[in-house]
């Protein structure tokens, strides 16, 4: 199987898969423990609006997506603090409007029509060296931010009220997290596409949480699981000529069900009479 690595696009796909898995491990862990998977999905889908606008105005599509999803993430942050009771409805609305905007802008763009599918399901095999450098720098920034503010992110995720009382800027950290999600999402879209972002953000941390005792270890295990799923998915998609993004997600989904099943089997022994 190693001979496939003589192709540059396969090597790039491999690197991209590893880098994206690390991003998903770190950001996904924070997303899952803060219960903001839905907001992350909203940001990812609204990003399509940015891609559409970028095509219309002639900007690079991923720059458009980054700017737009960053803006959307901030608006969602404000909305979720303003109206906690109806935050899911507001996110749903922005989710839909973002996608619709993207489609309309692409309709209005003269000339050739972009391949919508590659944004919906990703295109890991078209990753170029430039993308790898971009992903690497983004990963460095994310790791640095999370490392420096680790104890604050941990405390705010675990007990927001207590953190507020002792003087941690809870809201600022929340917006920093949303901003990091927005930038990560843009990178993940390249690999698995808009529709499957949520899976790669939530499946590895969900599994990892059960086997770890700290947020840091959860991030590391999530990253490792993500790498396994991505590489296995990539290998299967190459060998059986399947869509890579969807294959990666199905492998992750298989991991998810295996972990659920192992819970089910382990449960009788762990819940012995207390």
């Amino acid at each position: 199987m190693w001979e496939v690595l003589q192709f540059e696009f396969m090597r790039n796909a491999l690197f991209a898969g590893i880098l994206v898995s690390i991003t998903c491990g770190i950001i996904g862990t924070l997303v899952v423990v803060n219960r903001i998977v839905f907001i992350s999905g909203g940001i990812a889908h609204a990003a399509y609006g940015g891609i559409g606008m970028a095509f219309y105005t002639g900007l690079p599509p991923f720059l458009g997506a980054a700017l737009f999803s960053f803006a959307v993430s901030m608006v969602m942050g404000v909305a979720s603090l303003r109206d906690k009771q109806r935050v899911d409805a507001i996110i749903g609305v922005m989710w839909a409007i973002g996608m619709a905007l993207g489609i309309i802008f692409i309709d209005l763009t003269p000339g050739y029509h972009v391949d919508l599918m590659s944004y919906l399901f990703g295109s890991i095999l078209t990753v170029v060296t430039m993308d790898i450098w971009f992903m690497l720098s983004l990963n460095m920034i994310l790791i640095l931010i999370v490392f420096v503010f680790y104890k604050e992110f941990l405390a705010v995720s675990y007990d927001e009220e207590f953190s507020f009382v002792v003087g941690i800027p809870v809201r600022t950290l929340y917006f920093v997290l949303l901003g990091m999600i927005a930038l990560s999402v843009v990178m993940i879209i390249k690999i698995v596409g808009i529709i499957l972002v949520i899976a790669l953000i939530s499946i590895p941390p969900y599994i990892a949480e059960k086997y770890t005792t700290s947020l840091g270890k959860m991030m590391i295990l999530s990253s490792v699981l993500g790498i396994l799923f991505t590489l296995a998915g990539l290998w299967l998609s190459y060998n059986y000529d399947l869509t890579s993004g969807a294959t990666i997600i199905l492998v992750a989904g298989l991991g998810f069900f295996v972990s659920l099943a192992s819970d089910f089997i382990r449960r009788p022994s762990t819940e012995s009479p207390s």
Partner: peptide
């Protein structure tokens, strides 16, 4: 977490 404070963030 009880040892956190504004002045020692990060």
């Amino acid at each position: 977490m009880g040892r956190m404070s504004t002045s020692r963030i990060g």
